[in-house]
Amino acid sequence: MKTGENVIEVVGLWKKFGNFAANKDLTFSVKKGEIFGFLGANGAGKTTAIKILCGLWKPTSGKVMVSGFDVYTQPDKIKKNIGYMSQKFSLYEDLTPVENIRFYGGIYGLSKDEIRRRTREALTMLELENVARRPVKDLPLGWKQKLAFTVAMVHRPGIVFLDEPTGGVDPLARRQFWNMIYEASNRGVTIFVTTHYMDEAEYCNRISIMVEGEIKALDTPANLKSRFNVRTINEVFLKLARNT
């Protein structure tokens, strides 16, 4: 269990669209270096909450602090201090890995020297040297996702949001990806991740399960399994999401 400071603090978050409440009174916090799994059925309100945490949308009410900044008044500071990787592959397909890193490094205002250094590190770590000069669209999906993760971390954010990062990725590449997540977490980076793979939920330090806009459970995977008296998080998920 991580014991450091809270880098995400949410108290009584509501988000309404007309009469429809996508987020209902969410309260939770995430610690520095924690791997926090944010689970829920399709349409449960996960994407809405993530957009708010990333400073893209304002809540209807409630307190939301990310990296010490207030989402109502300091969304630009939040954006500089977080990384985000979308479920949809969002690098430029016709740019090479090197060009993508340079582009995103430039967007985040890194110096030329810094971009060069990060590029070298990334290519070595991902073993991408051989394909560094080929367009990203030629890479296998598993490598693309690892590259996307690296690009999301190019400005060394304290928190990174991963929205279904491993959908469709082969089982070996999926595990290599989680290895990168563990390494980042060991360096103190906070990981906020959504997934439909319930075995991946078990890799998280803590998970929350959202059902129809509310957080129905939040604990370590081990505690959730023992509370619901089941053997897997999949069963916990099915119990919670079906009882509606």
């Binding site: 059925a41 399709n42 449960a44 279904e164 959908g167 439909h196 998920f237 099915l238 999401a241 079906r242």
Partner: peptide, 13 residues
């Protein structure tokens, strides 16, 4: 062709 991709565990079941 991949009828359950991106679908949550409950809907998949």
């Amino acid at each position: 062709d991949e009828p359950t991709t991106g679908v949550d565990a409950v809907s998949r079941k």
